[in-house]
Design a protein around this nucleic acid. Structure first.
Lengths: 240, 240
DNA sequence: CAGTGGTCTAGACCACATA
DNA sequence: ATGTGGTCTAGACCACTGG
């Protein structure tokens, strides 16, 4: 007589969802591509249309797919308005939503320090890219941020000129990495000397600091970003 | 011959969802109550079990219901751990989640000013309650907040002694108002004289200010709250 | 054991987009 | 007219809970 293992039960639609997700991860279905119809997928995977639907709906809820009645299902693109503002919570106080202009101040490669290795789950000896840039809203510098990326995931990044405004679209199109999830930790801090120069504010100005880690579809961290934001005329919007 | 109106199409499961939601709003099914089984509801409303399920699942996704396989479906309670931390995004930097202790400094009634009427959609002449309190995390004052409530929605609030730590549970149990949604606008500010006294910090300390409006199940604003938080050892967590 | 929610199927029909 | 996703149904079976 053996002790019964708890034996995990995995619903069929979850297995289907995983198989579909793998095709997104490995680039079989790149951003923008139209998927086969529900009927075709159901036939191909030998499950009912309802089961396919449940998997597609789940991926749609995670913003990885977009569905349109009468047209079909396609892979979400980082250029979409919906995606653009999903991770950009900073808004003018009058709620006029606009996408910020960016200007890169520097891009260089460095050996990773302990903090970066902890945030990005790197090993000793791994190298990182460091990007510094300021972002303008309403013609005014509002955000100064430092972006840290593993060189292993972004080879030859320094040969891309210029670094575009929307870096997540770049990650997807040039490096096959789709950002699927982000966690942000917010604090209030005082402007440092560097901040003062970049944001043209006074020493001691309170700034909103956003400490963000972005995860790929595989669930691995791909970007660590620290943003310092002027919030005299802007705010960070959170809906719960 | 008449011109055809565009005629909005409303799926059956949405109508069912609305009927169920109304029973939550009017108190037919108060927090904690067990609902009839899917089979019973389907019979009662003359729709299939699948349609009932879709409506129940939607309400569950909005955290208004809780479902448990083998046991049934019941109305979510504001005392639940899940609900407690849903609206409490402030966490210690070491991620040890704990619920803050609160001490009410004052509770008074006032005529509403223009700002309060705008936030809470009140009319001229409507009165409001004003609560001031500080909240402690890890035995240390961390949040100082002002809560503004329409007197019309919370009659006799000043006779409740003491005002409990979890006010949303109080709103539900004593005034039949369930908070279903919240929007928060975050800024970085400098500590004022009042903040300094309440939070035992220095003048000029940067604080995270949270401007929150809470909405009832009906979608009407029921609470306006401004919280000022020390973020030297704490942060606001946002997951996107 | 009976009763609950959770999964899965098969098929019909509806709303919508495109050609 | 055709093909897509969206809705709705009816029924079978599975997993879980509690008496």
């Amino acid at each position: 007589m053996t002790t019964e293992a708890p034996l995990a039960f995995r619903p069929l639609y979850q297995q289907v969802k995983e198989r579909l997700l793998n095709r997104l991860i490995d680039g079989t279905w790149p951003p923008g591509m139209w998927l086969p119809s529900e009927h075709q997928l159901a036939q191909e995977m030998n499950v009912s249309q309802g089961t396919i639907r449940k998997a597609l709906d789940a991926l749609t809820a995670e913003h990885l797919l977009v569905r349109a009645q009468g047209r079909g299902t396609f892979v979400a693109e980082a250029e979409d308005r919906r995606i653009l503002f999903r991770f950009l919570r900073l808004t003018a106080d009058d709620d006029s939503r606009q996408f910020p202009e960016s200007s890169v101040a520097s891009l260089r490669q460095r050996a990773s320090d302990a903090g970066q290795r902890g945030k990005l789950k790197l090993d000793k000896g791994d190298r990182v890219w460091l990007i510094e840039r300021t972002r303008e809203l309403a013609g005014r510098p509002v955000v100064f941020e430092q972006i840290c990326l593993p060189v292993a995931l972004f080879p030859g990044l320094d040969q891309i000129e210029p670094i575009p405004n929307n870096v997540y679209a770049l990650y997807a199109s040039r490096f096959g990495l789709t950002v699927g999830r982000v966690t942000e930790k917010l604090k209030a801090i005082l402007a440092s000397e560097t901040d003062v120069a970049e944001l043209r504010c006074d020493v001691g100005t309170p700034l909103l600091q956003i400490d963000r880690i972005a995860y790929s579809l595989r669930g691995t961290p791909v970007e660590w970003r620290i943003s310092r934001c002027l919030t005299d005329e802007f705010h960070y919007l959170s809906e719960l």
